[in-house]
Amino acid sequence: MKILQIFVASLMCLGVFGKSHAAQLTREFDPPFPAQAFSLIDLDENVHTLADFKGKPLIVNFWATWCPPCRAEMPSMERAWQKIESEGIAMIGINVGEDFDQVFGFTADIDVSFPLLLDVDGQVTNDWPIQGLPTTYILNPDGEMVYRMIGSREWDDETLLDAIRDLRQ
């Protein structure tokens, strides 16, 4: 266990994860590109589909508990969620390849109140154009991909959130 902790710590020390990049958002998909539909359960076994979020901008974060940059950005995602939850913007995390116990254990360490969905067999992650973790997509209210960010970000950065707010209809 100690070796694993050193392993994670050494990755966190690389100087990249969790650092605050200047918020830069360029439309990745212009015109916007329809996102692949999904149906996944959260930690309370509630089913969520892509269609449920229609009408709101949606932040979709693909992550795993063993992924250091994913862990690094999760607190800023939660802070962002606290800002935008009441502003008509939705946020979900899609965990890649882990089960309920692993993700539930993670939430004991890091407080997350937005829905964490389980892609246990990795099928949804395979269906989306993802090359590495974490990857985050910003969808417009029509369920279309507009922005993509690879690697962690400081999600409570107002410049970044303003760009997402601008997607509201």
Binding site: L11, L14, V16, F17, H21, A22, Q24, L25, T26, E28, A64, W66, C67, P68, P69, V96, G97, G122, T125, Q131, G132, L133, R148, M149, I150, G151, R153
Partner: peptide, 21 residues
């Protein structure tokens, strides 16, 4: 886990600050 923990075979980074690990 191996698939996602290993560096992507091909990856492009369009935004400043985009990074893969």
């Amino acid at each position: 886990a191996f698939k996602w923990a290993t560096f992507p075979t091909q990856q492009y980074f369009k935004l400043t600050g985009d990074y893969g690990w």
